[in-house]
Nucleic acid binder design. Structure first.
Lengths: 207, 207
DNA sequence: TGTCAAAGTAAGGACTTCTAACATATAAGT
DNA sequence: ACTTATATGTTAGAAGTCCTTACTTTGACA
């Protein structure tokens, strides 16, 4: 009787009933709104309008507004991590070019999804409390650390490797913020992002 | 001419009427709220409560909420620029130590006033539209450029100087964001901010 | 005393988040 | 197939906050 209380046949997730997959739909709507109106220009009501459902619908999927937005950011960060891994494909192991490639992908995420990026890193983190989100962030950083270690000829994450990784992250992180704001970017004059990133990688991986 | 009025003296330095200097009082209240509740945890009503005036009072001094918060951020950035200039005092001209000192002050501002810092740089800039604010920002960056030029033996802001300055800014900017968030800072392991900043200055000013 | 800028009072009107009660489509069990 | 349970959505609305404006009052100064 109660042995089959948690049957969740996956193969046909789209064969929903009313909406299909409202949870995903709301997350997508949330993402669009944040991209369109900025990190704070979001309301549950707006997301519902965009998703085409009533304002009460989200509460069947999320405890409250915070959980809804946290879910969206978490999804974004998981996507970010995957992008970072993919960026390494085909780049020779143990070369600074791999670090450069990671930096380029990091910047690209900030440029492609500035709303999500700033929501995650712009100082709202206090309220974004989710183990999966934390895990995605740490996982992403560990990708960088591994590449730095390889470049430095280390077999494990030494304090020196961690320090260099953190410095590289600081740089790419700041660059992402500056590039996401035209008013600030223009102060840098004319430059190629790739040049700056490879220059940086070489400097930070040298002795 | 009933001069027997019991008007409170109060130094009269302000235009002494009801509040003294409500404009400044509201800006300070706004700042406190942003520091306490984060970049988006601010409302005109709250600021009024904190300043001890009615919710209609601000509209004698600011056109609307946006102008009020822009004024607060602008004031913060002017303060920031002054701090940067002061940080150079006593540091030998033409040495990387001067760049390091600027970076340290930049980071300190982010740590001391994280709310203002993130409000300015966290992606709300679209709405923060004020010539004085823009000027304060550009002025601050020009301080950095001047020091970089001196270190590089240049007499003017060449493209190379601008590029190095922008890279240094990126780094310090990103570091500030990471340091303002304990969850992110701890990924860097054990380190001294000053060590990282001086290490960075040397690397970025080298040929 | 009269003027005028600055603050207070009151209120409008729009939005929010979230809950409660009700409706219905799908899945499960018989 | 039929019933039942569950998940999902809708409608209605409570309860509250917010921004802003119109009008009134206060008090400093000439």
């Amino acid at each position: 009787m109660e042995n089959a209380k948690k049957a969740k046949p996956a193969g046909l997730m789209k064969s929903g009933y009313h909406h299909g997959d409202l949870r995903a739909g709301l997350i997508e709507a949330t993402r669009q709104l944040v991209e369109e109106k900025g990190p704070d220009g979001f309301s549950v009501s707006d997301a519902c309008r965009l998703a085409g459902v009533s304002t009460a619908a989200p509460y069947k999927h999320f405890k409250d507004k915070a959980e809804m937005i946290t879910a969206m950011v978490t999804e974004g960060m998981v996507r970010h991590r995957e992008n970072m891994l993919n960026a390494l494909e085909g780049v020779p192991v143990g070369t600074p070019a791999r670090v450069t490639a990671l930096g380029r992908q990091y910047v690209d995420f900030a440029l492609n999804e500035p709303g999500v990026f700033r929501l995650k890193f712009g100082g709202f983190t206090d309220r974004l409390d989710d183990p999966k989100l934390q895990e995605a962030g740490e996982g992403t950083f560990s990708i960088v650390l591994r590449e730095v270690a390889l470049c430095r000829g280390e077999t494990e994450i030494t304090p020196d490797v961690r320090r260099r990784g953190f410095m590289l992250w600081s740089f790419v992180h700041g660059l992402s913020f500056l590039l996401a704001d035209p008013k600030l970017t223009k102060l840098g004059g004319e430059f190629e992002i790739d040049d700056i990133l490879s220059d940086l990688s070489v400097r930070m991986l040298a002795d």
